[in-house]
């Protein structure tokens, strides 16, 4: 077996240079919680590992009306951060409910997004907040709207020489919530998940964003369901119709966690719960 190379640069410039030189022959390693199980099971044979945990990319700050997260910020940090809890509540909830204590310590938000799992919890919340993904390479930095970032299961628009550098979240107006259903209460991957972002004026819904996870090859933004409630009074009947619309276009799979049939039912119920919570519907 060919020996695998290992790089752990301490500067971003050096990292981008390595990515430019190695491209797809360099596998970015953040927390490794998605990557290492695949290496251990011989599903993945990297040629070189490029560890990004020494770049100081673990920070959460507020800048120009946005929350800026370094790509290597851990899910534990995000779950415990007051700024995120207050201003991007759904993301803190998603982080809190993803993995167990020992995985949260090392799992990163950048890894959750770059891995492009259709059921990724943090990415689901970020999708409902219209986050922007900052990608850096020796050619410069570009920003991609998260709704355009995922192209398939495990596939994204990231080019092989690009590093996911930061995630920018326009601070949501209104309320954001995150709901997931797993096979057990804690430390469980989502059978289905959803994140809802609502701006309400009394009982009227002014703005709505709905993200749905584990229901198709990529996370879904349910724009038609959003259009159903925008500008309308949002009561429980409207929420139920909206949720039915949200799952109508989904295409979940049967796997070891749940059947496609069950996922549709679960997804729909989660959207109702999330809408009811975000809009303070009491009945």
């Amino acid at each position: 077996m060919k020996d695998v190379g290992y790089f752990a640069p301490s500067e971003i410039g050096e990292t981008l240079k390595l990515l430019a030189d190695y491209g797809a022959q360099a596998t970015v390693l953040a927390g490794g919680t998605d990557l290492v199980p695949k290496i251990n099971c011989y599903e993945l044979k990297p040629e070189n590992l490029l560890y990004i945990g020494r770049l100081g990319l673990d920070y959460i700050k507020e800048k120009d009306g946005k929350l800026v997260l370094g790509a290597a910020t851990s899910t534990a940090q995000i779950a415990a951060n007051e700024l995120v809890q207050k201003k991007a509540t759904a993301l803190a909830q998603a982080a809190y409910r993803s993995g167990g204590a020992a995985t949260k310590t090392i799992a990163t938000v950048g890894g959750n997004v770059a891995n492009a799992s259709p059921g990724a919890d943090l990415a689901c919340a970020l999708l409902a907040m219209d986050a922007e993904i900052a990608l850096a390479s020796v050619r410069g930095t570009r920003s991609v709207a998260i709704k355009d970032f995922f192209t398939g299961r495990g596939e994204t628009v990231r080019r092989p020489d690009e590093l996911l550098l930061e995630i920018h979240i326009p601070i949501p107006k209104g309320k954001t919530v995150f709901w997931k259903l797993g096979r057990r209460k804690a430390k469980t991957l989502s059978v289905a998940n959803t994140s809802v972002h609502l701006l309400m004026d009394g009982k009227k819904c002014v703005e709505a964003r709905i993200a749905l996870g584990a229901m198709a090859p990529t996370l879904l933004r349910c724009t038609q369901a959003e259009a159903l409630i925008k500008g309308q009074t949002l009561d429980i009947t409207a929420a139920e119709e909206c949720a039915a619309r949200a799952v109508a276009d989904s295409a979940p799979i049967d796997d070891q966690r749940a059947s496609a049939w069950y996922r549709k039912k679960a997804g729909q119920a989660l959207v109702v719960c999330a809408l009811a919570q975000a809009a303070d519907i009491n009945n």
Partner: peptide, 17 residues
């Protein structure tokens, strides 16, 4: 690792340098 719990099976050894 530095007093935080981690799964040793998910941790590439060189990252604990």
């Amino acid at each position: 690792i530095d007093n935080e719990p981690v799964n040793a099976c998910l941790t590439i050894a060189l990252t604990v340098t």
